[in-house]
Amino acid sequence: MPSPDTIERTDPAAALDAELNVPYVLIVWDDPVNLMSYVSYVFQSYFGYSRARADQLMMQVHQQGRAIVATGALEKIEADVAAMHGYGLQATFKRADQA
């Protein structure tokens, strides 16, 4: 047990490393604009999902209002969100442990 005079120091670089190594998830949200076939096409063309997997995710978006379509490092997921916005889809991200 540390004495009351002991001060614990945390390394800011180590804390940042730990924060960046937490996986993040990409969430695509349902919207009234895009056709279901288009959403499936985006999942196939951008993520490389099979038609069956893309259709499954698209149906989850349609029926449940959202689907987690990718998981990865923060920088990758941020780029994926920007790509989804480029395709006209509503997408956000959050830490995997908070999804």
Score class of each variant (00 low, 15 high):
58 M>G: 04
27 I>N: 00
15 A>C: 04
9 R>H: 13
20 L>V: 09
43 F>H: 10
9 R>W: 10
54 A>H: 08
48 G>T: 09
62 H>C: 07
55 D>A: 10
72 G>L: 04
26 L>F: 12
39 V>C: 06
33 V>C: 03
69 V>L: 04
13 A>I: 13
80 D>P: 00
34 N>L: 06
10 T>D: 08
45 S>Q: 06
77 I>F: 09
12 P>A: 10
50 S>M: 07
82 A>M: 06
81 V>L: 09
51 R>S: 13
13 A>D: 15
34 N>F: 04
1 M>Q: 12
90 Q>G: 02
41 Y>F: 15
40 S>A: 15
23 P>S: 04
20 L>I: 12
15 A>W: 01
40 S>V: 07
83 A>K: 10
30 D>G: 01
32 P>I: 01
75 E>S: 11
55 D>H: 14
53 R>P: 00
38 Y>M: 10
90 Q>E: 13
13 A>M: 14
6 T>L: 08
73 A>S: 07
63 Q>A: 05
87 Y>V: 02
30 D>A: 08
15 A>K: 11
30 D>E: 14
48 G>Y: 05
15 A>Y: 00
19 E>N: 06
30 D>H: 03
82 A>E: 15
46 Y>V: 10
34 N>C: 06
36 M>C: 02
91 A>P: 12
10 T>R: 12
18 A>E: 14
35 L>Q: 08
3 S>V: 04
70 A>I: 01
74 L>N: 07
56 Q>F: 12
15 A>Q: 15
78 E>K: 13
56 Q>A: 09
11 D>P: 04
8 E>D: 08
51 R>F: 05
85 H>A: 11
95 R>H: 10
78 E>I: 08
81 V>G: 01
23 P>N: 06
35 L>R: 08
33 V>F: 11
89 L>I: 06
85 H>S: 13
49 Y>V: 00
71 T>Q: 15
95 R>F: 04
38 Y>E: 11
84 M>Y: 07
7 I>S: 04
23 P>H: 07
4 P>Y: 02
57 L>C: 06
41 Y>T: 08
13 A>S: 14
7 I>D: 10
43 F>C: 03
76 K>M: 11
50 S>W: 06
28 V>W: 03
93 F>W: 13
9 R>F: 14
26 L>S: 03
92 T>V: 05
50 S>C: 06
42 V>Y: 01
41 Y>L: 14
83 A>E: 06
72 G>V: 05
76 K>H: 14
62 H>Q: 13
92 T>D: 12
37 S>F: 13
15 A>N: 10
81 V>R: 07
69 V>A: 03
49 Y>N: 10
29 W>Y: 14
29 W>N: 11
46 Y>T: 05
47 F>L: 08
26 L>N: 02
20 L>Y: 08
79 A>V: 08
82 A>Y: 03
3 S>L: 11
84 M>T: 05
